[in-house]
């Protein structure tokens, strides 16, 4: 318990740092942190100029890890992402030049503008945290984390992400416009500031801490009724027509891990039904077919399943 509280202060520190950059988006920031803790990747989808890239960069700076960025243009090659062998004339041998995936935080900007060929280069990296080049598997950082952005409008010359790619993301989040107060604050702060202030973004969380946090998140307890509720939710999702491809076990595992992370962020070491339902929209909006009315559909799916009953857990059911 004390351990949790100890690390939780660091988490609050991280959230505060992000909140200072992205004003008035506490929920979004929380979701980002939850994803981070559950080792899931994030797809940010919104209109241009709402701060997607800013958020990603701020996260990298706050964690202090290696940050890499790919600007996904149509002519980007897979080797530009993963890295490639070059022949060293002096040593007369091939030498590996690591690509941007060999980092702690990878920002894939405008990911749907690059060709599927390049997009699929990310599949292995995101799922297994390794890349295989010339029959040699090269492991990535343990905390490897992808933030991809995409633009929902202006679809000319884009390649929509395939299901295989989408399933590897944990959440699809959208930024949304800041409220009036936040925007006013933003304007006020921009006067006299040339660029992002790195010092201000420094937080006490390091990459090493993140690893530790991710370990602790995986230990958050899930009681029997809550797990039953998760199964009911999954059932309800799979019965819906919009989820024609169903919900993969990978997604279900992710769902539980996201809920654990949210419980951890809220200072609990057990999952409650609110955790499940809070992370559901981000998780499900990635996997729903079609764009129209996604949130209403997800809402109706969730509303069909009753929350876990409030009963004293039996001895047999506890873990």
């Amino acid at each position: 318990m004390t351990h949790v509280i100890d690390h939780r202060e660091k988490l609050i520190d991280l959230k505060n740092a992000l909140n200072r950059v992205i004003l008035g988006k506490t929920e979004l920031v929380e979701n980002v942190v939850v994803c981070l803790l559950s080792r899931g990747h994030i797809l940010l989808e919104d209109l241009p100029g709402l701060g997607k890239t800013t958020l990603a960069k701020a996260l990298a700076i706050a964690l202090g890890g290696r940050f890499a960025r790919i600007q996904c243009t149509p002519d980007l090659m897979p080797s530009d992402v993963t890295g490639f062998q070059v022949f060293d004339q002096n040593k007369r041998e091939f030498q590996f030049l690591p690509g941007p995936v060999f980092s702690d935080i990878l920002l894939a900007d405008e990911i749907n503008r690059t060709s599927p060929r390049t997009q699929s280069a990310l599949l292995e990296a995101m799922a297994e945290r390794q890349v295989t080049i010339d029959n040699l598997a090269r492991p990535l950082a343990k905390t490897f984390f992808v933030i991809a952005t995409q633009n929902p409008v202006d679809q000319h010359g884009t390649y929509p992400l395939p299901e295989a790619q989408l399933d590897r993301f944990a959440m699809k989040l959208s930024m949304g416009y800041p409220d009036r107060a936040s925007e006013s604050q933003l304007l006020k702060e921009s006067v006299g500031t040339a660029s992002m202030d790195r010092d201000e973004l420094q937080s006490s969380v390091t990459i090493h801490d993140l690893e530790q946090l991710q370990l602790e998140v995986s230990c958050v307890a899930v009681s029997e009724p809550v797990r039953d509720e998760l199964m009911n939710l999954v059932q309800s999702v799979r019965e819906n027509r919009r989820f024609s491809n169903g919900l993969s076990p990978r997604a279900v595992l992710l769902w539980q891990r996201l809920a654990q992370a949210r419980a951890y962020v809220h200072g609990r070491d057990f999952v409650i039904p609110d955790d499940l339902r809070d992370v559901a929209p981000g998780l499900l909006s990635l996997r729903i077919a079609g764009h129209s009315n996604a949130s209403a559909t997800i809402e109706s799916i969730l509303s069909k399943v009753p929350v876990a009953p409030m009963v004293v857990p039996s001895k047999a059911g506890s873990q």
């Binding site: 307890a221 009681s223 009724p225 809550v226 609990r268 070491d269 057990f270 999952v271 409650i272 039904p273 876990a308 009953p309 409030m310 009963v311 004293v312 857990p313 001895k315 506890s318 873990q319």
Partner: peptide, 12 residues
């Protein structure tokens, strides 16, 4: 307390 009572594992 309610959340704890309903959903926390028994050991806790």
């Amino acid at each position: 307390l309610g959340e704890w009572a309903a959903y926390a594992p028994l050991e806790k």
